[in-house]
Amino acid sequence: MQVHLGGHLSFYDAERRSWVEWPDAAPLTLRGLAERLGLPAGEIAFVAVNRRLAALDDLARPGDRVEFFPPMGGG
């Protein structure tokens, strides 16, 4: 599974990566995936699976492209 840590969410990856290869195992919820990635719940504004918005309770499946984004301000 390809996981994107958008904006400042890549800060929470130890290596500050914005793309992480997540081993395909049993399906888990996006919330569970975020927790395992160490993303604080308060910093996730929205998530997309295969380029479509999804809910945190939705399942992430092997082969999915998952993108987490934080609240985004101006600039």
């Binding site: 958008g6 929205f46 985004m72 600039g75």
Partner: peptide, 8 residues
């Protein structure tokens, strides 16, 4: 910001 705003 570009990718996130597109997804949103």
């Amino acid at each position: 910001l570009t990718a996130g705003l597109n997804t949103a």
